[in-house]
Design a protein around this nucleic acid. Structure first.
Lengths: 251, 251
DNA sequence: CGGGCCCTTGAATTCTCTCAAACAATGTGG
DNA sequence: CCACATTGTTTGAGAGAATTCAAGGGCCCG
């Protein structure tokens, strides 16, 4: 567990939020933007590998990712770990803990991370005073649920190769939707250990599986990063097609 | 796919809702009850084995379970099926489809089912006009997400015996919380095929795994139903402890 | 140069799956 | 009432998948 580097930046108005330039995020009214701006308490930069939220803790904050990748995970007592999902720019982090009490998963920075900070205590104001944004929060929770449904199907019923292909296609497709944002690298910032913990496979077997995908010309492994060469090929191997809606909200 | 038996019952006021007698559900104000009552369009009885909502469909309704069990599942094209979660009295069904568009999972009645029907078109009124209930909906989505997190950890990282023990303990604990409701049987209405599709295991191996749990005196298998004899023993095998909040909302 | 992190590989073991068969309980039509 | 089909459970055996153990290589950084 490393320390959180707390380089607090200036409080930029949400109307200038860099995420708004991406076509996959929905448009907001001036009133909505004003409300979110008041709700925002600051920004934060987190080191790669740092833990943003910890299993068992009660955080006073929740976050929206401005740039970088994070992941959510849970662990058993003996150390076995499962990565549940990844969080990319525009994703809300810590909602579950804010609503239900204590965090039951850990959130860690996969790359250097820039996040927007919100105050947990004031979260309720959204439902009291701004229905359209409260709807967005519910929408995002439902979206996460849908993603988890897909992961569950994948881990429960797909073979190792299918699982790996699904995961990489899924992540690549998420990147692609953020393409016109600055500083979004078209490469997946993963180690094979991350892939293994996401797929529910051992590191050794994950390595052999990824190797096969690489030999098939579908991906290229670059050491702590993965380049997807043929996302359609991956989808075909996995038997998966993307169904994500085009327009989405964020906070 | 059987036909839905559509025995429509009278529109009972929510203030008399049988679920309210259970201590694990939160109290509602008269205003909240009045609002939900207007939102409710009727009740429905569904046969065991019938499909309530289908993958790929756009349903005009969503439901709250009044009595009985259902389950959510997804399938691959070749028929491999994964059960994602179970729905018990008080659980909201079809929210994901209502918010995100088309259903991406199937909901099937595991027992004869009695549900309360809501209209998808009017769902938005909750966020526009009744913040406290909108919060409840978000809360329920977050709860489902948390449950899926746990299942994902289980399928990804637990052994067959641990997985089975976790599942049965999890379901038993959910029943236990509904105990003072009428007509809630203290037995899990599952076939071994359901267990297999939930755990991501084959039927044969599931059978052998359950057999071991039965030999250990933890459960008794009764044919399409399972009696949990020692829930604490199951938790111990699974390395799991229940952490669900005491008070919860519903619609 | 040493240490740490990440990837790779082979071999033996363990787990899980598929195939095949059979039994019990239930319900149905003749 | 019996013959028959269906569903759910059980068991054994062989094949296949994934794990663990063990070891080595490449690379970067202090």
């Amino acid at each position: 567990m490393e320390m959180q580097s707390a380089a607090k930046g200036g409080k930029i108005s949400c109307s200038n939020c860099p995420l708004r330039s991406n076509s996959h995020f929905r448009e907001f009214t001036p009133e909505e933007l004003a409300f979110i701006s008041r709700f925002k308490t600051g920004e934060l930069t987190i080191n790669q590998g740092s833990t943003l939220l910890m299993e068992g803790a009660r955080s006073a904050h929740l976050y929206t990712i401005l740039s970088g990748w994070a992941f959510r995970s849970k662990a058993l007592e003996d150390g076995r770990r499962q990565i549940l999902n990844y969080a990319l720019p525009g994703d809300l982090i810590g909602l579950q803990g804010s609503l239900l009490g204590e965090m039951q998963h850990t959130v860690e920075a996969l790359t250097p991370l820039r996040v927007c900070v919100f105050d947990r205590n004031r979260l309720g104001e959204i439902w009291e005073r701004f229905g359209s944004l409260a709807f967005d929060v519910t929408w995002m929770a439902a979206r996460e649920e849908r993603i988890l449904d897909e992961h569950l199907l994948s881990i429960g019923r797909r073979s190792a190769s299918e699982r790996a292909a699904y995961l990489l296609a899924f992540l690549q497709q998420r990147i692609d939707k953020l393409q016109n944002l600055t500083k979004v690298d078209r490469v997946l910032p993963l180690t094979q250990a991350h892939v293994a913990d996401t797929l529910g496979l051992s590191l050794v077997h994950t390595n052999k599986t990824l190797r096969k995908l690489a030999q098939g010309g579908l991906i290229r492994w670059l050491g702590s990063r993965c380049e997807v060469l043929d996302i359609e090929g991956l989808c075909k191997v996995a038997g998966w097609g993307d169904t994500t809606p085009v327009s989405r909200p964020f906070l």
